[in-house]
Design a protein around this nucleic acid. Structure first.
Lengths: 355, 355
DNA sequence: ATGAAAGCGCTAACAG
DNA sequence: CTGTTAGCGCTTTCAT
């Protein structure tokens, strides 16, 4: 029994090459203790029903005794399957992607995959580095949030032949599969809502990121189409704030907009946090919402429903995006055919008291 | 040139074993095209200054031509170094850990490590599974947020010999290294602040998670020590809400507390979101803050500073926690001695208009 | 139901 | 500066 726990004390040909490795317990150790071949120990772990009960018990006891933890690096290298899916988000800071992240985590866990997250940090070169590092680890799938900007990154992903799902956006040229919605149409729909409720002097307060600006573009286009352009610039007074958007930038953004355009009767904000800032500032200066000013956000935070007045906003169903993205990946990995490769999940305008 | 791009068309002993693997370009391919030994190609990638410029150029051209992406799985297996650090958080949902996560990401990136995140989901068995999966991939380090609850998880981490840093909490028995603060002392400090500013009828509104309840315990103890216990229960009227805490649960929590104890003159909330809900509800029912009710939160959201009135809260320096945790891990990995293994980072009470 | 042999793709060790 | 050799720890293929 004593020599069982020693590490290959018997026939080590120590003559030339010293041993390497991290020195942990290996499957060979376990197999030796259980008096089976390594492959049998492997089967006991991966396909226990193809191993005789008595053998299984011996292997399990050996695992227990040694505290063996499989080296999945080695396993993945040998089998080309990692049971790991990597996700890329611009940032986990801010509430924007949280519902989606949660859903991806849950969906992949349910399918027996591990989900791990990396941040690209709104920075193209760091995004490229992250993508290369992820591909290098050969995950079974990759979920991208927001389209990949660099051509390098797209080419590498395509060449890797790893199943990819892009989310949160619609593009003409998906790398592989895609679950998203049209940011332009969000802008259009919000403009339609405000116009329909009698607003005539519309403004925009937006973060300066890609997708927010596309929502703004859709908004502006709809306003012009309705014949309500009233600013000398592109027709709609606009305040732009840097990322990340906060309630603070919402407050200062509104102050600034009102200074330039005192007649504004509605503001479309690119995030709920920004809109909450507008609500706080409006109340602080005695501007009645919704009577004197209509306010619409984007994202449908829990806070938006709980605010006073509750905030009209646009809801994106991150849970469904995550579920569908996971299904795409898992189907691909397990060799099932994927019928349609692009899904437009849409969005909904949630009307509350702020507009 | 044509046969360069074919895959080992020359001497393949196809007699018995068919080829396996994912079929991507390997370093051997690259080496063959560059007419060097594989190890030289490896050096061109990892230690380019130990390779002659001309050789380096040939290898680089071969990499370019083939679109080769290193298989870091194989590299890590061979070298026992992964340049990967894994993080575990209960959840990325909610603002609580965001500053810490950001800081970890930045700090590890600066040191040349990749940081990836997994969610344990406030669930002991899922936490165990996540920890086992992480250890199996042999990262160079593991950062844990909040202490690990299960004995199994702690034992596995300890046995793995992977550098570990626990954060966000102080325990008597760290697995390896630790950067945190005392939740009890937070409660004590907030009670002291409220008592010093003349509050006499103190209450608590708290989420039901582990650490929040420890803050509450510190608060209650301090209130009793000050001779201000006034509730028949443990001395301080308490409202408990489920996780995650939201502004909505803050609103209903205050309603409920006031129904039971109309005399309350201050509330300590276990999160800023909860406190913001209290602020919203107080205003909605015409209860003046801070005159009639003092409110203190925890976490120092950006929103808390931007609210009207600005919220008194407790600030945790997540950036510093992340930086120190990264330093612990990197020092360990690179074999430098770690002087102290436990750091108490403390906290600060930020006094604003709400109290 | 179990095992032997042969790699997965890469790098550490030791030459030259 | 470059190459040869021998693995890292696991699983695949083929055989019994």
């Amino acid at each position: 029994m004593a020599d069982d726990t020693e590490t290959s004390a018997d026939s080590a040909p120590r003559s030339r090459r010293p041993r390497r490795g991290a020195g942990g317990v290996t499957l060979h150790e376990v197999a030796r203790i259980a008096k089976v071949a390594p492959i049998t120990a492997s089967r006991a772990l991966n396909t226990p029903d193809r191993v005789a009960p008595a053998t299984l018990a011996r292997v399990r006891e050996a695992i227990e005794r040694t505290g063996y933890v499989p080296n999945t690096l080695a396993g993945s290298l040998a089998s080309s399957r990692s049971r790991l899916v990597a996700g890329v988000v611009p940032t986990v800071v801010g509430p924007v992607f949280q519902e989606l992240i949660q859903s991806l985590d849950d969906s992949f866990a349910a399918a027996g995959y591990q989900f791990m997250l990396g941040q690209s940090g709104y920075n193209a070169s760091r995004e490229d580095a992250l993508i290369e590092a992820i591909i290098g680890r050969r995950p079974d799938g990759i979920v991208l949030t927001g389209a990949v900007h660099s051509e390098t990154g797209r080419r590498r992903l395509q060449a890797s032949r790893i199943p990819v799902c892009e989310t949160w956006d619609l593009t003409d040229t998906p790398i592989d599969t895609l679950v998203g919605f049209s940011h332009e149409k969000v802008g259009t729909a919000v403009a339609a809502h405000l116009v329909a409720t009698g607003r005539r002097r519309l403004a925009v307060l937006t973060g300066d990121d890609h997708r927010a600006l596309r929502r703004k573009a859709g908004f502006v286009e709809a306003v012009r189409a309705a014949g309500l352009a009233w600013d000398s610039g592109d027709g709609v007074p606009t305040g732009i704030v840097g990322a990340p958007t906060t309630a603070g930038s919402g407050r200062t953004g509104l102050i600034d907009l009102l200074a330039r355009y005192p007649d504004i009767d509605a503001v479309f904000c690119s995030s709920d946090l920004l809109a909450v800032g507008v609500l706080i500032e409006a109340r602080a200066r005695g501007l009645a919402v919704p009577e004197a000013l209509g306010v619409v956000g984007f994202g449908d935070l829990a806070l938006s429903r709980d605010f006073d007045p509750p905030l009209t906003t646009v809801r994106i169903d991150g849970t469904t995006i995550g579920r569908l993205a996971a299904r795409f990946i898992v189907d691909r990995v397990e060799g099932r055919p994927v019928a349609e490769r692009v899904i437009d999940i849409g969005f909904s305008v949630i009307r509350r008291a702020s507009s």
